[in-house]
Design a protein around this nucleic acid. Structure first.
Lengths: 247, 247
DNA sequence: CGTCCGGTTGAAACATGTCAAAGAAGGTGG
DNA sequence: CCACCTTCTTTGACATGTTTCAACCGGACG
């Protein structure tokens, strides 16, 4: 009898399905797989990469061979423009999948940088495709993941296109809150892993504007900030900030 | 001997692969398929939907069953926010695939509206998944398409997050130009299918700002605009507008 | 022929960006 | 363990770009 993975059965994605295979990333599946399929899935996520803060998991232009699932730690992904401007396209925490942008051109289109000491598992893409041909549930789950990434990006586009600074920051904090909560951490108290500049880059704002937005939310009694420590005092009132806009 | 599709062999996606099956959408494949696979692919794209200007191909919340490939015409997709704000997330022309955002939740997350009389073919998603399990090349092509959508969205995020009005509009026009050119139309002379307001919504600007940006580009001698007719006088100089920014 | 819709343009209000200074936090090496 | 240096953060004053409000123009359509 093959040994099952050492991973615990926690549903970190807040999806309804319980995970039979690997709870630590989003490619988890509902029960009901044959044992050899389970083994194959486990093998797919065997390889690990350990990174120190600041190190890159992959770089723009580097050839694509695998997706990465965050095991622990925190990453940012950023794209670059010809003239040197760069923008953070996302922050990625435990369980989340990175690198799907690279499939289209067989080369990574963004840098993935560890914002703290982190570990990711490397998922060979050719093998993933092969296995997903054999396991329809895996195939569909993977398609859902890519789709979710698209939906997420549309949300960011909405944010960048129609919200003002305070709303953007509130949206960002609520998103983090929800993701921390889904992983069993506090929804109201957490430590930011990124700088004001990185937040600003993600939200389409300058770092000073981010800082001011933090201060304003604090003055309104919605949050307490001290450097990177954030405490959300009124989750529900913070939500109203977003829809409460004038425009 | 089964009859081959009536479609012509034109590489509308500007990809290197020539299309053996259906040149009118992005799920085209390199040569080398078995005949029954070709048939199956053709059957997948049999169903057609014809829409008049203003009609919806699908709506937010409607249940997901199929992807759509534009055969002719022009579509916009738009998302909605709780407070009623809506934002255009993309414009879609001949050959392009729509609806991939819906896979994640089995429901459409945006409206798809025809901006002129249009036709789309409906691609049953369950069948697409089944077929792509049997045809690795199709599977990979589909993954590339979803990935390309993600990359495209990152580009828009960069635009929304770091460009000023004039640069955004220039980027938009160049993108249209390139897509028209890839379909055999003029890269410099074309007619916009959307209003200033829709452009503005896509670019995160108000319609007046879009109008002013058009005027400024025209005053600089880069383009000629008359209502929705656009003529790009200096493609290369228009490109420099984008990287030529102060920030 | 008049109305409606889309587009253009101006002036003033507003939000964010820029520049600058100073304070706080964190890491490194003596 | 402390001192120093660097990086990050906050805040103010001012500049800039975009939005808002309003008026007007032109073409499409009944």
């Amino acid at each position: 009898m093959p040994q099952r993975p050492v991973l615990k059965l926690v549903d970190i994605t807040a999806l309804k399905a319980t995970c039979s295979v690997c709870s630590l990333h989003e490619l988890c599946l509902p029960m009901g797989l044959a044992m050899d399929e389970v083994e194959a899935l486990d093998r797919l996520t065997e390889r690990r990469r350990i990174l120190k803060k600041g190190e890159k998991l992959y770089s723009i232009g580097s050839s694509f061979g695998a997706l990465f699932a965050v095991r622990y730690g925190f990453f940012k992904t950023q794209v670059l423009q010809e003239d040197g401007r760069e923008q953070v396209t996302g922050f990625h925490m435990m369980g989340e999948l990175m690198g799907m942008d690279a499939i289209s051109s067989d080369a990574h289109t963004c840098d993935a940088v560890a914002l703290e000491d982190s570990e990711a598992c490397e998922i060979d893409f050719t093998q993933l495709e092969r296995l997903s041909r054999a396991v329809p549930a895996l195939q569909h789950q993977f398609h859902k993941l890519m789709s979710r990434e698209i939906v997420r990006d549309h949300g960011v586009m909405l944010l960048l296109g129609s919200m003002r600074a305070e709303e953007r920051l509130a949206t960002f904090l609520l998103n983090l809150s929800q993701r921390f909560a889904a992983r069993g951490y506090s929804a109201t108290d957490f430590v930011l892993r990124m700088t004001r500049e990185e937040i600003g880059s993600y939200l389409g704002l300058k770092l000073e504007t981010v800082s001011r937005a933090f201060s304003r939310l604090q003055n309104q009694g919605l949050i307490t900030v001290q450097g990177r420590e954030v405490k959300i005092s009124h989750l529900s009132r913070l939500r109203t900030v977003i829809s409460h806009c004038t425009s």
